[in-house]
């Protein structure tokens, strides 16, 4: 079975770029527009990886990372967050919220896949 990756981002073009790259790499992709919207995917179905943006309306990335970690089925699921090079403080905050790693924006497909490769096999 294909591994499923949940992506959460409020920007449509970023979602599209992620979906395209991930599907091309052989993953199934679930997409949520923000932390609130993505809750619907935390329904017990297996998820191999979560990729989330940090700045989002309704519920932001930090909040969503905490939700995932608090969920019995997903507390060990790797979580990568999208960040820019300068956001060091934010990086620490996300890591202590339970994130596994990060992806620096802007990214090219091979960077994205390399980051995923560190946490999912």
């Amino acid at each position: 079975m294909k591994k499923r990756i949940l992506i959460v981002d409020d920007s449509e073009s970023i979602r599209e770029v992620l979906s395209f790259t991930l599907e091309n790499a052989g993953y199934d992709v679930l997409a949520g527009v923000d932390g609130e919207d993505a809750q619907k995917y935390l329904n017990g179905e297996p998820i191999a990886l979560v990729i989330t943006d940090l700045h989002m309306p309704n519920k932001d990335g930090i909040g969503f990372i905490k939700d995932v970690r608090a969920h019995e089925d997903y507390k060990r699921v790797p979580i990568l967050f999208l960040t820019t090079e300068s956001q060091t403080a934010k990086k620490m905050e996300a890591k202590s919220a339970g994130a596994t790693g990060w992806i620096v924006k802007p990214f090219v497909p091979q960077k994205l896949l390399a980051a995923i490769n560190k946490v999912v096999r």
Binding site: R76, I79, A99, T100, N117
Partner: peptide
């Protein structure tokens, strides 16, 4: 290390 979803084996693989 497992707490936040890291699997050290993947890192060794890489």
């Amino acid at each position: 290390v497992f707490e936040n979803g890291t699997n050290p084996l993947y890192l060794l693989d890489e």
